[in-house]
Design a protein around this nucleic acid. Sequence first.
DNA 1: CTGAAAGCGCTTACAG
DNA 2: CTGAAAGCGCTTACAG
Lengths: 345, 345
Amino acid sequence: MPHNRRTSDPRYGNRPTMKDVAAQAGVGLKTVSRVVNGEPGVTPETERRVRAAIEALDFRRNDSARVLRKGRTATVGLVLEDLADPFYGPLNRAVEEVARAHGALLINGSSAEDPDRERELALALCARRVDGLIVIPAGNDHRYLEPEMRAGVATVFVDRPAGRIDADVVLSDNFGGARGGVAHLIAGGHRRIGFIGDHPRIHTATERLRGYHAAMGEAGLPVAGSWVSLGSTDPGRVAPAARAMLAGPEPVTAVFAGNNRVTVTVVRVLASLRRPVALVGFDDFELADLLRPGVTVVAQDPAALGRVATDRLFQRLAGSVLTPTRTELPTRLVPRGSGELPPAN
Amino acid sequence: MPHNRRTSDPRYGNRPTMKDVAAQAGVGLKTVSRVVNGEPGVTPETERRVRAAIEALDFRRNDSARVLRKGRTATVGLVLEDLADPFYGPLNRAVEEVARAHGALLINGSSAEDPDRERELALALCARRVDGLIVIPAGNDHRYLEPEMRAGVATVFVDRPAGRIDADVVLSDNFGGARGGVAHLIAGGHRRIGFIGDHPRIHTATERLRGYHAAMGEAGLPVAGSWVSLGSTDPGRVAPAARAMLAGPEPVTAVFAGNNRVTVTVVRVLASLRRPVALVGFDDFELADLLRPGVTVVAQDPAALGRVATDRLFQRLAGSVLTPTRTELPTRLVPRGSGELPPAN
DNA sequence: CTGAAAGCGCTTACAG
DNA sequence: CTGAAAGCGCTTACAG
C-alpha cells in the first residue's frame, strides 16, 4: 500500500469528493451534503446508502472548499514574537483553547521582532482570510492593517498597543507593576537602584521605565544617569550594563530588571559577585523559586492576556460594531528573597 | 471609519474580488490574475490600470480560493502535546521556519495528551487539507490516519513512533541517552540508583527505563523494585515517589529523572533534604546551570527534531514515493554538578 | 424527501 | 497581448 500516491491532478492527491460519493450511492450531490452535515430530510435508507459510500471511499469533506462558500474560515491568526519563547507558551495555548471552544483552528507564526516580517505574516494570514487576528506587535506602525480591519478582519493587539491606528488592545499594567516593584526595593531600604530594560522603541520598556522613575520620584530619590540602561535584551549587552552600574564609586545596591530575559542575565551576573545585591524582575519564570535566593518578580498572567484578547476577538466576530477598547490586566508582586535583600553598602 | 462593518453576505466582510478589480480597470478577469501573480504578457499601460484599481479597492487576493483551485494549501499541521510546554517551543519554531522557507503556513494545536483529542485535531487538519502533518503522538493507534496518508497527506511523527501503522518518525536516542546518564552515575560510585519516569504507555518512558536497566545490568548492579516508579509526571505523584525511594533502610543515593517535568519536581524534593543526593535528568531546561548544584542532564535537541521532521515532510511532498524511515538523533550528557555528587551513605 | 442549477473567488486550458 | 469558459469542492436558494 503506497504511502503517498499523489498525482499531478489538482485533486488533493486522489481524494473522493461529494460528487464521487453521490455517484457511488446513486443519489444527488445535495443529498450527500445533507448527510455529511447532519441536515434533516433524508430517509434512513438513503442515509444508509450514503454512509456506506462514504465509508467505502474514505470520503472526508474538504473544509477548505466549504469555507470558501460559507464566507468564514473558522480560523484565527496569531502573530507573536517567537514561538520558542516560553513567555508566549501559555498565551499561545490560551488563544488556542478559546478558539477551539468556538470551533476555530489557530494559525500562528513568529515576527522575530522584525516589523517587516510581522507585516508580511499578518497580511499572509489575512490573504488566507482568517476571521480574526491577534497581534503581538513588533513594529510601531500598523496602518497596513486598516484595510483588512475595514474589510471585516477582527483584530486585537496584545501585550503592546497598535501603532498609529485605533484598535483593541489587551496588556498588563506595566507602569503600575514596575512602580510597585521599585517601591518594594525602596521600602527595603534601597536608595541607589538600577533599571535595565528592553529597547526604548518597545512600548512595555518605556512604560516600565516610567514606573521606575515614578517610584523613585515619589520617594524623593535622585536617579543617576548611569543607573538606567535600555537596549537589546541580548546577554552580550545586558551583562556589561549590569556590571557597569554595580561598579564605580556609587554602585547600585539593587537592580530592577525590565523583563524575563534581562532578569536571567542579571541573575548570572549577580551570582559571580561577592556581595549580595537585591533584584526584582518584571515577568515570572519557571524555577524562579528554586534559585538561591529565590527571584522576586512582578508577575504578569500571559494566559489571561491570551484568553481576554481572544474573547474580545470573538465578541467582535459575533457582532455589532464595537468601539476599540484598552484592557489592562493587573500584575502581582511575588516576593521570593532576592527582592528582600537589604542594601549592602 | 467603522472598525468592522461585516455584513451577512458570504463575501468575507465586503472584500473586493478580482472581478471587481477587473470591472474597475476595464479589463478581463484573467488580466487581473496575470498582474496579481506577476505573469508575463501584460502591457505596461494595462498593468498600470490594474494596479491602480487594486490600490483603489484595497484588493488582496483570497488565497483560500486560490488554494482550492491549485490543489495544495501551502499549509502544514502540527499536533503537539501542549503549546504551553517550553520543551516544544523550539520544536514549534523550527517547524515554522522550515515551513516558511517553503512558503507554507503553520496550523498547530495541543492534544493535551488525550488520544481522542489528538485524533480529532489531526483529522480537522486533514479536512482543511493541510499538505502535511507533523504529529507528536498522544495515542498508540494511528490507523485512523491511514486513509489520509493514502490520499496524499505527508505525515511525519516526532518524539515518539506512530502506533500500529508504518510511518516516518524522528526521535531522540532515548535508550542510549538514559543508559549513558545512568552509567555516568555508576561511574561516580553509585550503586543504588532510582528511576522516576512517565507513564509506561508512553514510548519514550519505556525506552528510557530500558536504558536504565541496561546500564545497571552492564555494571552487574541489582535493581530493587522500590527504586523504579512510573506514572503521571504530576508533582503530586512524583514527589511522594521520590521521597519513598529516598527513605527506608536502603535508600537510593542517586536519582535518574525520566523527563524535564519529573526533574524539576525531584529538584524540589532534594532541596528539602539534609544529605546530598545525585541527580541526572533527561531533557535540558532553562536555568539548569543556575541551580545549586547545577543540574546534570541528558539533553535532546528539540529544534533539531522539528527541523529534521519538517525537512522529511517536504521531501515527501516534493516527490516520489518514499519508504517510511526512522531517524534517531543523538543525545548529549551535560555535567553540571548534580550528577557528579558522590554517594553519601 | 430529493436534486439540478448557480455561485463562493480564484486558476487552468484554450481561443482569438 | 487579452479574455470568455470551465472547473476546484463545496453550500445556497429553489423547484419538484
